[in-house]
């Protein structure tokens, strides 16, 4: 394991734990969260998730046919199965299986 990998994991762990512990430092007792922050907290997750989906599909730009078509179909499979059953686990399993299959046959 290189020093870079250890540092990367260490930094990610420290930042994550700090975020999880932050409310204890800031808002324990009677202090309440400022209004702008609670508003941001309500809308930030869905915007971040959208950026992350773009991040996951970024490779599509350089390989439209090879990964673009399987990705598009598999995302559709995930979305439709989730709309139908609302079961995260099944949708992930199903979508990943479809993607891996399409990678091999297209």
């Amino acid at each position: 394991m290189s020093l870079y990998v250890i540092l990367a994991i260490f930094i990610a762990a420290v930042v994550t734990f700090s975020l999880r512990a932050l409310p204890f430092l800031l808002f324990s007792g009677n202090r309440k969260m400022p209004d702008w922050l609670s508003r941001l907290g309500a809308v930030l997750p869905s915007a971040i998730m959208a950026v992350l989906i773009v991040y996951c599909l970024k490779g599509v730009k350089s390989d439209m046919i090879g990964t673009g078509v399987p990705s598009a179909i598999a995302v559709l499979v995930v979305a439709l199965s989730y709309k139908w059953k609302h079961n995260t686990f099944l949708s992930i399993l199903f979508g990943t299986a479809v993607y891996m299959l399409l990678l091999r046959i297209l």
């Binding site: 809308v43 997750p45 998730m49 996951c56 995302v75 989730y82 995260t88 949708s91 992930i92 993607y99």
Partner: peptide, 22 residues
Amino acid sequence: DGIDFCMTALFVTIFLDQWEKS
């Protein structure tokens, strides 16, 4: 190969869940 799609699928389900709730 392609198991990394798991991550995309996870984000898509969370995205849809948040979409429906707001």
